[in-house]
Amino acid sequence: MSRFRLDAGDLLAIAIGGVLGASARWGITFISTDATTGDWFVSAPNTSLTAGTTITGSESVGAGHAIASASGIPVDTLTVNLVGCLLLGALTLLLIRSTTTSRRLLIGAATGFCGSLTTFSAFAVEVAWLLRAQPVFASRPVGENVRFDRDVPGLALYVVLSIAGGAVAFAVGRILADRFVGSAPNPTIGEPA
């Protein structure tokens, strides 16, 4: 995202920022997951199915198995992505106006922290997964006999909230940074991020 040449100190700052960003993302995922299912989706018991029923793409329902259908918006991924876009919007403006001493910290925060706090792969897999409407995560206990509803309105909302929300959050971050930091451009260092 930057045309700066990265030196060893920049890489160290990016690595530290990356670890903090990934840890923060893990923490947000951890606190937002459902304690009973261990995952982000809403899982509700489905009493319309009885033992012995075969669910599409799954094994037949055993007598002792919980039967559930799952749908919902992955709020943890949405949260980290929107917060990361807001932060990065502010940081890109600060980078343009940075001095040499603060530049490394800002690069670590932008490329490292924001880059790793936000994630594209989880977004893509969640959308694909819910579009498929069939159980994956077979290694997890919840994978058994959980039917994934193809919740198209919910999915569309998730995609729109992520993309449009990300753009808005980025713009807001930039405006807020501009307002609070004020204009102190440094033309010798400044470069569009």
Partner: peptide, 21 residues
């Protein structure tokens, strides 16, 4: 592999920054 690895490899905020750029 997922949260630390591929989650950090891929990025959402950079896409927003690049589109803004």
């Amino acid at each position: 592999a997922t949260t630390a690895g591929l989650g950090s490899l891929t990025t959402f905020s950079t896409v927003a920054a690049e589109a803004a750029s």
